[in-house]
Amino acid sequence: MDDVPDRRTLNGDVAALTSGVVARDPDSWEELYRCMHPGLFGYARRRLPHTVAADDAVSETMTRALNRIDGFEPQGSGLNGWLFGIMRNVVLEAQRAAARQVPSEIADQPDNGQLPGERLEDLEQQGAMRSAFTALRPEDRELLELRVVGQMSGEAAGEILGMKPGAVRMAQMRALDRLRHGFQEVTGAD
């Protein structure tokens, strides 16, 4: 459970795999799968009804990526943003196929048993953040998720969401304001 990649280095790690992935090197694809799994799985899990569906969505995303890799052109968001774009379509199709609205609460984290005080405090903060994030509008949640988990630039996120970079910046600023407000309400902080 502790081998989660640091999200701040994810983009660099994934970018380093690009040439191997384009060359269809199995080791590079496996590494890409492992690197991207937490972010893609989390995105899917927050939108699909159960973990199996989310895992299936990640697998489907990787399969589609493999089938389209010959047409991949490295751009600002690189493989990371490209995979999130595919994942977004996979999830939308799954939701349409299921013909129902899926609850979008954030999936609970597994219980790690006894927790040291510092970790417990982290979890309390994350619990407050989870509540604040869940209370946001769906479009706010998706934008922040693409920017934070997908580590996309405003331009790349805008491509996926059909927004211009300036609109993305404004939307992110407002979403962050709402998130901060909700977080402070939950924590009681000033």
């Binding site: 989660v4 989390g42 994350q126 953040m129 934070v148």
Partner: peptide, 18 residues
């Protein structure tokens, strides 16, 4: 700080793909 905490919150811990 808000974005860092959000990133930690949204990152789902998994054992990775089976």
């Amino acid at each position: 700080e808000l974005l860092d905490l959000l990133g930690e919150t949204l990152l789902v811990r998994t054992d990775g793909p089976s």
